[in-house]
């Protein structure tokens, strides 16, 4: 074994340390991903589509929530879904069965989606003809939180059987949330050790102002979630200030005299 780096290569040896120059870099490790995420967001903004990233542990009910959301909103808004899973096309098939375009990304062994994977999936979607695009991330409460995809909002699902202390156990994920949905709330009557208030209190301990809402796709209790989505869609429709690109012909009113 090499004494310097600890690797198992039998013939690996290092020259004596002669650390000649130290170069200061100060660059984030996710710079490449962040750049691509920014690029994705530019695509989304140009097309005027709201993009929501859904994250949770496996089995918290992301796909079931999407099915119920499509049923409730499909008539009013143009929706599409990007599905992230390690394997199978099952989830995309479930979404397509509701008459909604869906792209499946199979990550193989990768435990999260990244901006490059989402970018590759975009040509398969009619972005210009969409109001709302959901990205269903790989079921995992750890890694997806660390990778920006270009979304406008992060929604984290926490299903009642998982326990109400999950925000304290997975602070990185819950801190990044813009909304926390307590799913399978129809089970609350049989689960005496889950308190929705406790989830909210734990999310506040992470200095996160995300609202905590109860939903049950099975019982059709989705009002808070649907209102939240409608409000975000409304927010995006509101006209915003876009600086007029300079035409260079000197006729802009804002140009000070003498500079034209």
């Amino acid at each position: 074994m090499c004494d310097t780096c600890g690797c198992a290569l039998p013939d690996h040896r290092h020259a004596p340390e002669r650390d000649a120059r130290s170069i200061e870099v100060l660059e984030g490790l996710k710079t490449h991903n962040d750049r691509l995420a920014h690029h994705n967001r530019t695509h989304f903004d140009a097309a005027g589509v709201l993009v929501v990233n859904l994250m949770s542990s496996p089995g918290a009910g992301k796909t079931r929530l999407l099915e119920a959301t499509i049923e409730a909103l499909g008539g009013r808004h143009r929706l599409a879904v990007i599905e992230g899973d390690l394997e199978t096309e099952n989830d995309a098939r479930r979404i397509r069965a509701k008459g909604i375009p869906a792209v499946q990304i199979t990550t193989g062994s990768a435990c999260h989606l990244d901006a490059a994977m989402v970018h590759e999936a975009l040509p398969a979607l009619p972005l210009e003809a969409l109001d709302l695009l959901f990205i269903e991330n790989v079921g995992n409460l750890v890694c997806p939180a660390s990778f920006d995809l270009g979304q406008h909002a992060n929604v984290t699902l926490l299903s009642t059987p998982e326990g109400d202390d999950k925000p304290l156990k997975y602070p990185v994920m819950f801190r990044a949330s813009d909304l926390v949905l307590v799913t399978k709330s129809d089970l609350l009557e049989v689960l005496d050790d889950f308190a929705v208030d406790a989830v909210a209190a734990h999310v506040r301990r992470l200095a996160c102002p995300a609202p905590v809402l109860e939903v049950s796709a099975r019982a059709g209790r989705l009002d808070g979630w649907l209102h939240w989505l409608e409000a975000r869609l409304e927010e995006r429709r509101r006209p915003r200030f876009h600086p007029v690109p300079s035409t260079g012909d000197g006729h802009l009113l804002s140009r000070p005299r003498g500079l034209a």
């Binding site: 002669r18 650390d19 130290s22 200061e24 100060l26 984030g28 200095a207 102002p209």
Partner: peptide
């Protein structure tokens, strides 16, 4: 409702070249 000032960094600070 505090603001995080440090603690979420993942930064390549420097590289020592031979």
């Amino acid at each position: 409702c505090t603001r995080l000032v440090a603690g979420d960094e993942l930064l390549l600070e420097s590289v020592g070249l031979a």
